[in-house]
């Protein structure tokens, strides 16, 4: 095991090359709905249990299923109203289970990136060939059902290995959502090629706010607005990224979607906000800012 993941060098917030976004925007804003499928009875990973209760854990299973049956469409209406395209963090097996959801997102020009095959299959314990297999499965499945090549990755249920980033870069992906160390895209050190992290945010993640912090829908709205206000102010100096990761089973509940809509209307009501997808942010950063960031970075322990 390593003491440091060795994935990035140091680049202090107050001494960085300036980032510019298209049309002089201050904030690159992206929304990442997690469209997931949790299996009722998955094979048990040796490192992590899928469900707290013995099979069938109908409470936990049906809670997730709510997102696909009901919550997705409430979230969709709000995003449509605000002109926000989603970047779907996709358990790619949803392509087979619920192709209707893929079609709805695809006809709106949304992006799809991989969130593994199922949210109940973890990368822990995989060897390199197995990890390659799920990356290749993701690429092929999304290409076949959604007509696009994935550019991004959020590890299934946030389960990673030491080699995940190397393999993603090797397969031509551009970005990871698994690093929470920054409010701007950052170069990620991989064996070959160029690869970046995109701010994804646990703090602004609906399920973390409601579930882990136990906060109310209206409190979530306050937090989203405060996050935006700060990043918008700082974005006048150098472009920032604001991400809202969503889970339709959480934000799509009727007692939550109203306050959430208020936050999304607030953010998208500002000038100078680039309504982007993950791929667009990563591609822009790679084309215009990656090299300068690498040159400005210092090694851990270096001057």
């Amino acid at each position: 095991m390593r003491r440091d993941p060795g994935l990035y060098d140091y680049l202090p917030w107050n001494a960085r090359p300036r980032i510019t976004w298209p049309n002089g925007a201050r904030v690159a804003f992206w929304v990442a709905p997690n469209v997931e499928f949790y299996e009722l009875d998955p094979p048990a990973n040796p490192t992590r249990k899928a469900w707290a209760r013995p099979t069938p854990d109908v409470l936990a299973y049906s809670y997730r299923d709510y997102g696909n049956r009901v919550g997705f469409f409430r979230m969709l209406e709000v995003m449509d109203r605000c002109g926000v395209r989603g970047s779907v963090s996709l358990n790619v097996a949803v392509c087979e289970h619920h192709p209707e959801l893929i079609a709805v997102a695809r006809e709106r020009g949304w992006e799809f990136f991989s969130h593994g095959i199922y949210n109940t299959r973890y990368s822990y314990g995989m060897d390199e060939a197995q990890e390659r297999a799920i990356i290749q499965d993701s690429i092929a499945t999304v290409e076949k059902h959604a007509g696009q090549r994935i550019a991004g990755w959020l590890a299934p249920a946030l389960t990673q290995t030491e080699r995940t980033m190397d393999l993603l870069a090797e397969h031509g992906l551009l970005y990871t959502c698994d690093l929470f160390h920054d409010d701007q895209p950052q170069p990620v050190k991989v064996r070959q090629g160029r690869f970046v992290s995109i701010p994804y945010s646990l703090e602004m993640n609906d399920i973390i706010v409601y579930g882990v912090y136990g906060e109310s829908p209206r409190r979530y709205t306050e937090k989203l607005k405060a996050q935006f206000d700060q990043l918008y102010a700082e974005g006048a100096t150098s472009g920032t990224v604001m991400a809202i990761p969503l889970h339709p089973y959480a934000v799509g509940q009727p007692h939550r979607i109203g306050p959430f809509a208020e936050a999304l209307e607030y953010i998208t009501g500002h000038e100078g906000v680039w309504l982007a997808t993950g791929r667009e942010i990563a591609a822009h950063y790679l084309a215009h800012h990656y090299d300068a960031a690498v040159a400005a970075m210092t090694k851990i322990g270096g001057e």
Partner: peptide
């Protein structure tokens, strides 16, 4: 490596992964 069943998906198909109810969008 993980045992092979971890990369095998016998219920990866249209609809649900059980037969208790059908897939249906509100």
């Amino acid at each position: 490596p993980l045992p092979p069943e971890h990369l095998s998906y016998p219920l990866r198909r249209y609809g649900m992964d059980h037969d208790r109810y059908d897939w249906s969008m509100l």
